[in-house]
């Protein structure tokens, strides 16, 4: 049973389907072991955005207030897509990297453990 409702075969409207975002899609970004930014971030992006642009221009700007951001070695970063390790292709778009609407991407920066090693 997909819902307990008075109406037989009730279905709900999906409020956040990609058509509602005016040509953009959502992507969620989380930086492991850096919980000074309290939760993963949510941003709208063009589905055609190259992954390299996200990595080189957008993510550093999102986290620029963290003292570890300037120390990140982007060649060492480990990427996770829906929790599974993956190797993104920086030339390809988000969608072609398997990062569709409401995909969640996490990155781990080896050696960096947040403020005072607290994972914050």
């Amino acid at each position: 049973m997909s819902v307990n409702a008075i109406t037989p075969d009730y279905t709900g409207e999906i409020k956040d389907r990609v058509e509602n975002f005016h040509g953009q899609q959502l992507i969620y970004i989380g930086w492991e072991d850096h919980l000074m930014y309290c939760a993963p971030l949510c941003i709208p992006v063009l589905p055609s955005l190259p992954f390299g642009t996200l990595r080189d221009q957008i993510i550093p700007k999102l986290y620029e207030l963290h003292p570890d951001m300037a120390k990140v070695d982007w060649n060492e970063v480990v990427w996770l897509r829906s929790g599974q390790p993956f190797t993104p292709d920086p030339e390809k778009s988000l969608v072609d990297n398997g990062l569709g609407h409401k995909a969640v991407i996490r990155f781990r920066t080896p050696g960096l453990t947040g403020i005072g090693g607290s994972c914050s």
Binding site: M1, S2, V3, N4, A5, Y10, T11, G12, E13, I14, K15, D16, N20, F21, H22, Q24, L26, C42, P44
Partner: peptide
């Protein structure tokens, strides 16, 4: 348990991005 109910969540962040 009841996805047809919660697909309708009015999530403030998404609503902001939808304008």
């Amino acid at each position: 348990n009841e996805p047809e109910k919660y697909v309708q969540s009015w999530l403030p962040v998404h609503q902001i991005y939808q304008g």
